[in-house]
């Protein structure tokens, strides 16, 4: 009933909780120094990184990109993804919200030392860029048999 009056949907308690979480994260649970190349939370695009004994998997949640315009490079173990996301809609349209990211972006990640720059595979599906990097043989865990 009051839907049209509630033009500001943010709950003040949400902000409160977020501040508390950030506080815990930076001061409570993070006593060691952060990487010099680390980015603040909320940097575009959001990234998840996972590892298996064979691969390092990087997932970038970047919807609505043209994969041909992406610049992906792996220098030693530093992965950099750069690109541009065009702005939506027409310039003269009346905007109520403009929360989606638009413009140039660049995100760098320091991967584990054993990342092999020669064996990289990248795919873009449903707005997720999946970069799979093979790990070097020597670094993989090996089964040792007892004679």
């Amino acid at each position: 009933m009051f839907g049209s009056l509630m033009n500001f949907e943010d709950n003040p308690f949400d902000d409160f909780r977020r501040i508390q979480q950030d506080f815990d994260q930076w001061f409570g649970g993070w006593p060691w120094p952060t990487s010099i190349r680390s980015a603040a939370r909320g940097t575009y695009p959001p990234v998840n990184v996972g590892t298996t004994p064979e691969h390092i998997d990087v997932y970038m949640f970047a919807a609505g990109l043209d994969p041909k315009t992406l610049d992906i490079s792996l220098h030693q173990n530093l992965l950099t993804v750069a690109g541009e996301r065009p702005a939506s809609g027409e310039n003269d349209a009346g905007y109520y919200r403009k929360e989606r990211f638009a413009g140039n972006f660049r995100r760098s990640l320091t991967l584990p030392e054993d990342a092999d720059p020669d064996q990289v595979n990248a795919r873009y599906t449903d707005g997720v860029l999946h970069i799979q990097i093979k790990r070097r043989e020597a670094a993989r865990p090996r089964q040792i048999t007892v004679n």
Binding site: A63, R97, D126, V128
Partner: peptide, 21 residues
């Protein structure tokens, strides 16, 4: 995150849902 804009005939909403088919 969403973009919402209006023209004379209606409202357009764009939402980023990466990973959703």
């Amino acid at each position: 995150p969403v973009d919402i804009f209006e023209d004379s005939d209606g409202i357009t909403l764009l939402a980023d849902l990466p990973g959703v088919s």
